[in-house]
Design a protein around this nucleic acid. Structure first.
Length: 297
DNA sequence: CCCCAGGGCCATA
DNA sequence: TATGGCCATGGG
C-alpha cells in the first residue's frame, strides 16, 4: 500500500530536531504520533484522510502516505500542506538578525536555531483549540482536546495504532452542551465550541472569508465579533492558521511569563508595553511570541 | 486552604 | 470604559 515517497528539500535555517522537540515536548497531543524521529498524522486532502509519515533526513523531508495511494493532485496537495504546516517557505534569517540585536533575546538565535512556527492549517481546529485552552492549564487543555477528538473525530487504524483527525465543524455543530459537559467542558466552553462550529458549518465563518478581508485589523475585528473569541484567540488563530506574522497574543499567560523572565516585565503588562517591546520586531511578532513560548518548555 | 493556568463573557456602576 | 465575578479542573 505504501506509495512512492515525496521529498521536500529542507531550507536554510530549518531544524527537524527543533521541530520534533517542540511538537513532542510534554503534552501527549492526540493529533499526531512521534517515534523514531518521524511524525505520523492524519491530513485531510481532496476529501480523504491521508495518514502521512514525515521524517527529516540530511537535506530533505521524506513524506510517505501509509493508508492510500496518491494521485498526482494528492502529491501536490500533500507537498503544499506540509510546506505550510512547517512554514518551510519562509526565510527566517531576518528574524535572527533582529534577535541578535537584542541583548536579552540574542541567545535564542543559537539555542533554538532552525525552529519554525508549526501552523494549524485547519482554522476550525485552531479556534476550538483556543477555546478549550482558555484559562486552564495546558495539560488539562490537552486532556479535553483528546476526549473531544477520540469521541467525535474521524480515525484511521494502522499497525495497531489509531490516528485521529480533529472533529469536523458539522459534527460538533450538532452536539449539545450536556454532551460536552460529560467530557468535563465547562458550560461556556461547550457553548463556544458548538457556536463556532455552527458558524463554520454553515459557512458564515471561514478561512476564505477572513482572507478576503484586507487588513489585519479587519480580521481581528471580524473574529472578535464571534461569541467565545476574544483578542487572544483572534491573534492566536491569525498566527497559527492564517500565518499572519504581526500577531501578538496579548494577555497570553505564557508570553507574559516569558517577558517577566527575560525582560523584567511585571505580571500583567499592558498592550502598549508589549507593543513597545515588540516594536523592533515588526513583521516578525508572531515568531517572537513563539520563541518566547519556546523558552518556557 | 490558597492561587494560577497559553481568556472571555456578562453584570454592574 | 472599567472592574469584578464566574467558569471546571489540576498542580503547586
Amino acid at each position: 500500500m505504501k506509495t512512492k515517497e515525496i521529498r521536500i528539500a529542507i531550507p536554510k535555517n530549518f531544524s527537524w530536531d527543533e521541530c520534533l522537540w517542540y511538537l513532542d515536548r510534554n503534552y501527549n497531543d492526540c493529533l499526531f504520533h512521534i517515534s523514531n524521529r518521524s511524525i505520523t498524522k492524519l491530513v485531510p486532502v481532496n476529501g480523504k484522510q491521508l495518514l502521512l509519515q514525515v521524517t527529516g533526513t540530511n537535506g530533505e523531508l521524506i513524506i510517505s502516505c501509509l493508508n492510500e495511494k496518491l494521485s498526482a493532485t494528492d502529491v501536490h496537495e500533500v507537498r503544499d500542506h506540509i510546506t505550510e504546516w512547517l512554514d518551510l517557505d519562509r526565510d527566517i534569517k531576518p528574524f535572527y538578525k533582529l534577535l541578535k540585536a537584542n541583548d536579552q533575546l540574542a541567545f535564542m538565535a543559537k539555542a533554538y536555531a532552525g525552529l519554525r512556527l508549526p501552523g494549524i492549517p485547519d482554522m476550525h481546529e485552531a479556534l476550538c483549540w483556543c477555546i478549550i485552552g482558555q484559562q486552564i492549564n495546558l495539560t488539562f487543555a490537552h486532556t479535553l482536546k483528546r476526549r473531544l477528538t477520540e469521541q467525535y473525530g474521524a480515525s484511521v487504524s494502522h499497525e495497531g495504532q489509531i490516528h485521529y483527525a480533529f472533529p469536523s465543524p458539522e459534527i460538533l455543530a450538532g452536539l449539545t452542551v450536556d454532551e460536552l459537559k460529560l467530557l468535563q467542558f465547562s458550560t461556556r466552553k461547550a457553548e463556544y465550541v458548538i457556536g463556532v462550529s455552527q458558524l463554520m458549518a454553515e459557512g458564515t465563518l471561514s478561512k476564505e472569508k477572513l482572507l478576503q478581508l484586507g487588513t489585519y485589523e479587519e480580521r481581528v475585528a471580524s473574529l472578535v465579533k464571534v461569541r467565545g473569541i476574544g483578542a487572544w484567540t483572534a491573534n492566536y488563530v491569525l498566527m497559527k492558521s492564517l500565518r499572519m506574522m504581526q500577531s501578538i497574543t496579548y494577555g497570553d499567560a505564557g508570553m507574559n511569563k516569558a517577558l517577566q523572565n527575560l525582560a523584567g516585565f511585571g505580571k500583567n503588562p499592558s498592550a502598549q508595553q508589549v507593543d513597545e517591546y515588540f516594536k523592533p520586531f515588526k513583521g516578525w511578532e508572531a515568531y517572537l511570541v513563539f520563541y518566547l513560548w519556546r523558552t518556557l518548555s
